[in-house]
């Protein structure tokens, strides 16, 4: 599915300083019954965001008008658990284009890269700086520069480099996807398949 190209993103950010945020929190299983990719943003963090009577939980950050933006900042080990790509869809459909954390679970990170959400892994110290800067001033902006592989904090001027492999970086900046790449080498895949033992 096509997504918007990602180059430089400058935005305020929403802080979620909790560790081990699993994909069951990002999107609970009962919202996985769709057969199309629609409406997932409404149920992002459903059970942290809403009471069981569907009234908003006032103390959850997405319900706090002080914080908004296209960048979600989460604690260490963000996106653990289930492989549901619906979690990444929820993040994207809600309006986030980037998730920042000091550590990501593998499958969630892959899913994000495949649908146009940039996972930016920073050091634990830099993550703490981001949380502190946003707490001190919620209008703090983060500047995520994918071509330069850097992230900086507008109010403090601090910045850090991040890693991404050059293939995925190219995909994100151009809006390409893996399937187009693989379809182009289908003949090689067929030859390979003819010689596999199983």
């Amino acid at each position: 599915m096509a997504y918007d190209k990602f180059t430089v993103l400058r935005s305020t950010a929403v802080p979620l300083p909790i560790e081990n945020v699993d994909t069951d929190q990002i999107i609970p299983a009962r919202f996985l019954k769709a057969t199309e990719r629609k409406g997932f943003g409404d149920n992002l963090f459903r059970d942290w965001r809403y009471n069981q009577d569907n009234s908003p939980k006032e103390d959850f950050v997405l319900n706090n008008p002080t914080y908004s933006g296209k960048i979600l900042v989460g604690g260490k080990n963000f996106g653990s658990g289930s492989s549901r790509e619906h979690a990444a869809w929820s993040v994207y459909d809600y309006g986030f284009r980037c998730v920042v954390s000091s550590f990501f679970a593998d499958i969630f990170k892959n899913n994000c890269l495949n649908i146009g959400v940039l996972p930016v892994q920073v050091s634990a110290a830099f993550l703490a700086d981001i949380f502190a800067a946003i707490e001190a001033d919620p209008s703090t902006e983060l500047v995520v520069d994918l071509p330069e592989q850097s992230i900086s904090i507008s109010t403090t001027g601090a910045s850090e480099q991040f890693d991404i492999n050059s293939y995925k970086k190219g995909n994100m900046t151009n809006g390409f996807d893996d399937i187009d790449y693989l379809l182009n080498i289908k003949d090689n895949i067929r030859d390979f398949a003819d010689n596999t033992p199983l």
Binding site: M1, S83, R84, E85, H86, A88, D106, I107, N110, N111, N114, I115, N165, Y167, D177, D178, I179, Y181, L182, L183, K186, I189, A193
Partner: peptide, 22 residues
């Protein structure tokens, strides 16, 4: 190992996925 839906589509269409070696 487990994969996301974009990768399910990849495997259906090309019988391959793209993964860095863990």
């Amino acid at each position: 190992f487990g994969i996301g839906t974009s990768e399910v589509e990849m495997v259906l269409s090309t019988q391959c996925i793209m993964q860095p070696k863990p």
